[in-house]
Nucleic acid binder design. Sequence first.
DNA 1: CTACAGGTTAGAGTGCGCTCTAAGTCAACA
DNA 2: TGTTGACTTAGAGCGCACTCTAACCTGTAG
Lengths: 143, 143
Amino acid sequence: MKIGELAKRAGLSAHTIRYYERIGLLPGAPRNASRQREYDASILVWIAFLGRLRTTGMPIRDMLRYAQLRERGSQTTEDRRLILEQHRTNVRARLAELHDCLAVLDTKIAGYSGLNTVEKDNDAARDHQTRHIRETLARPLKG
Amino acid sequence: MKIGELAKRAGLSAHTIRYYERIGLLPGAPRNASRQREYDASILVWIAFLGRLRTTGMPIRDMLRYAQLRERGSQTTEDRRLILEQHRTNVRARLAELHDCLAVLDTKIAGYSGLNTVEKDNDAARDHQTRHIRETLARPLKG
DNA sequence: CTACAGGTTAGAGTGCGCTCTAAGTCAACA
DNA sequence: TGTTGACTTAGAGCGCACTCTAACCTGTAG
């Protein structure tokens, strides 16, 4: 398949696929007679896995380390395992953190959902203090 | 307290605090005789909450909407609640997604941990296909 | 008086991960 | 034969969230 179809199937833009190849996340694709990239469907599995790494917040430079090991073949499985284990630890930490934050959100929302005519929470009480100098409306970040 | 101490206590840089004020996330702090910002400890609660929003991936422009409602006082609790509920939905989705990915990681790691002399997983099998054209080492992203 | 720590501002720079542009090539179809 | 539409490249641009710089000011300790 050519890059357009791969893009559709992988859920990436053709631009992004070329970018991934350029930085080394994807192996250089074989070309047809017109110098166009010709992909094997198996690349989809790798792209999907990269998607998992991205979704879990792995920086591209780490994916790159992994990708480079992968291209060196089966002698690097140990190193790859280590990378993934380290990453799994990070993901678990992130999960725990999000879980915590979720509890805070729940509490906050519960506060808002309780009585809604009375000034009932910290914010409302503090609004009297903080609502003062703020006439100057901040320059929005780049527009 | 002055900005340096607030920075320490809040775990942000003074630069970031001024930036947050500039864009409107933090209310304009009252100044002392030397035009230096003088903070009340109560700001720490608000900063901590902003930290939760950031940690859970809320974009600054949304925090800004929330902050602006907050400064308008108790008449906006309903709107704020809606924002937080929407955000909570996103966070839950994100948690589920991470959970999924974690399972994939576990599987992959288990694969690597099994037999480690044999070509045993998809990657190893496919290495023969993909390890070819890649001598050209990609230009690293900006250095 | 001097040195120094820490504050002030406007505005420039950074790192990340794309995302797009311009100018060109190529294959297929009316 | 033209005209789509998908592809090619190098390289510029973007949005986000900071992060830092330069030049200046102020309060305090030695």
